[in-house]
Design a protein around this nucleic acid. Structure first.
Length: 349
DNA sequence: AAGTAATGCAACCGCGCCGCC
DNA sequence: CGGCGGCGCGGTTGCATTACT
């Protein structure tokens, strides 16, 4: 139903755009806006279909596009969001300002997908290819908890993406999309959430923070059978059966399969291992920029034993404590944590 | 240096959704 | 209410470039 015939017309040019065509399109849109894409090519004097013009504008000519290499921070965000959303590139793109869905899609297909595969992670499910783990923590509740939150977060992100599309805030985006997202999520989804404590911080932060916590190694589940990690890597290791991290990370897949854990949880572990590579850490510190919620995922800045404020704050139902986590825990870092979370609370309220 | 394979990216294509009539 | 037009999304293709033999 409603198939657009615009590209079936004969005489319309296809293939790579010439600088002249770009110039025409740019000039026209700058002067008139794009309006109806179907009518645009004729008005702009282009022998192209409207679809092609739209694509060219969105993916290449738009002034607010950042081109060039993806930062590690962006990579991380893409992976996290992909684990939650799957191939919903447009939704993912709403969280990566200045990146187009097409660019993200291409980057995923050409770089990240392969990289995850090499690590023994299924890029579709974000599980280890062996599906080796029952539960990262050994506690099914934790997996279910995180899974539930991941589902919720997925729905929230979709709603957020829709909101962004609908509100057409392209020209003047809010300084932090999370604010709008929180409003949407809070109004529509709170009924399915686990009990929300007073001064409720949105659960989405917990999911992503959990992720980030694995990455920094400072996150810990509220579970009795886990010891508090004393080093960043300990956390990941604690979550896993013996030796899994190394086995999987180098592509050895001789791990017994228990099944049952949700893909998000697996993604946590694997990415934790991945991002603990020293080679990434240096780069990580150079990529803490941007202004959306992803930036709340502050990295442990190059020091494994340095407390990360983001990870040390109390959480609603995941990381109750972080006693000694990451080797931090001083009064000053406690204050930092407090301030950090106050800022977030201010942001989302 | 030439040929081939691999990689990266821009662009196309088809489908589904949504709003309008 | 159903058909139509338009747009947006995700998958795929094809070409250019780079790496390897």
């Amino acid at each position: 139903m409603g198939r657009s015939p615009c590209c079936d017309k004969v005489g319309l040019k296809k293939g790579p755009w010439t600088p002249e065509e770009d110039q025409k399109l740019l000039a026209y849109i700058e002067q008139h806006g794009h309006g109806s894409w179907r009518a645009l090519p004729a008005k702009a004097g282009l022998q192209r279909c409207g679809k092609s013009c739209r694509l060219r504008w969105i993916n290449y000519l738009r002034p607010d596009i950042k081109r060039g290499k993806f930062s590690l921070h962006e990579e991380q965000t893409i992976i996290q969001l992909h684990a939650l959303l799957g191939n919903r590139w447009s939704a993912i793109a709403t969280h990566l300002p200045k990146r187009t869905d097409n660019e993200i899609k291409n980057y995923w297909n050409t770089h990240l997908k392969k990289r995850l595969s090499k690590m023994g992670i299924d890029p579709v499910t974000h599980k280890p290819k062996t599906d080796a783990l029952g539960s990262a923590t050994g506690n099914p509740k934790d997996a279910a908890n995180l899974s539930h939150m991941a589902q919720w977060e997925s729905a929230r992100l979709e709603a957020e993406a829709r909101l962004v599309r609908e509100s057409k805030l392209v020209s003047n985006p809010p300084p932090n999309p999370h604010i709008a997202a929180t409003a949407v999520a809070g109004s529509s989804s709170s009924s399915v959430m686990a009990p929300v404590p007073p001064a409720c911080r949105p659960q989405c932060l917990d999911v992503l923070k959990a992720w980030q916590g694995v990455v920094t190694g400072l996150f810990t589940f509220n579970t009795d059978n886990l010891q508090s990690p004393t080093t960043p890597l300990n956390f990941v290791e604690n979550m896993l059966p013996n030796g899994l991290i190394n086995d999987n990370f180098v592509g050895n897949s001789s791990v017994p399969c228990d099944g049952g854990v949700e893909h998000v949880t697996m993604g946590l572990h694997e990415m934790g291992a991945w991002f603990h590579q020293d080679s990434y850490k240096e780069e990580i510190n150079m990529n803490m920029e941007g202004n959306n919620y992803s930036d709340m995922m502050v990295w442990d800045s190059g020091n494994d034993h340095q407390q990360n404020p983001a990870m040390a704050a109390p959480s609603d139902n995941l990381n109750e404590t972080n006693s000694g986590g990451g080797g931090g825990g001083s009064n000053s870092s406690f204050e930092e944590n407090k301030n950090y979370w106050n800022n977030i609370l201010n942001l989302v309220s």
